[in-house]
Structure formats: structure tokens, C-alpha cells
């Protein structure tokens, strides 16, 4: 698959998604810690790890596109 430069829209979605994942990391961790139900606690703890990975994936995606982004706005 050939990589194309990021559009403004794509960049917005990636940034918004990182905000979402960031919130979920904190939410899962906080909820797991105050939760008394062990099954739920286990699921939430596991998922907070997955959200960290997703966050990293999005960050990597930005990094990959950094190289091919134009340095000046095209007309």
C-alpha cells in the first residue's frame, strides 16, 4: 500500500483519537482500581494496556507520515 501525505481531516481524526485513547487509559485504570468486582477489574486492567498500545499506534502513524508531509502548503 502506498502511503499518501496526511490530509487535515485525517490529522484531526488521529489527534481526536489520541485524546479518546488517553481518556480511556485513565478511565480504565481509575475504574479498575476502585472497582470491587474482580472480573470487571481484570477486564479493565487488561483494557487499559490495550488502550496504551492503541495510543502508541496512532502516534506511530503520525510519525510515519511526518517524512512525506510537504513543508509548504500547496495551492
Amino acid at each position: 500500500m502506498n502511503m499518501q501525505p496526511l490530509t487535515a481531516k485525517e490529522l484531526e481524526y488521529i489527534a481526536d483519537s489520541m485524546s479518546n485513547e488517553d481518556l480511556l487509559i485513565k478511565q480504565c485504570t481509575a475504574a479498575a482500581l476502585s472497582c470491587t468486582n474482580l472480573q470487571i477489574q481484570q477486564v479493565l486492567m487488561h483494557q487499559s494496556q490495550v488502550h496504551m498500545q492503541q495510543y502508541q499506534t496512532l502516534l506511530n502513524c503520525l510519525q510515519q507520515h511526518q517524512g512525506i508531509a510537504p513543508t509548504q502548503p500547496s495551492s
Binding site: M1, E10, L58
Partner: peptide
Amino acid sequence: AATESSCPVVRQQ
């Protein structure tokens, strides 16, 4: 986000 992406790599992501 997937439906609005034009770059195939981003869409797959």
C-alpha cells in the same frame, strides 16, 4: 475516521 480517510495506510490503521 476510516470512511473519511483518503490514505490507504491511514484507513487500514
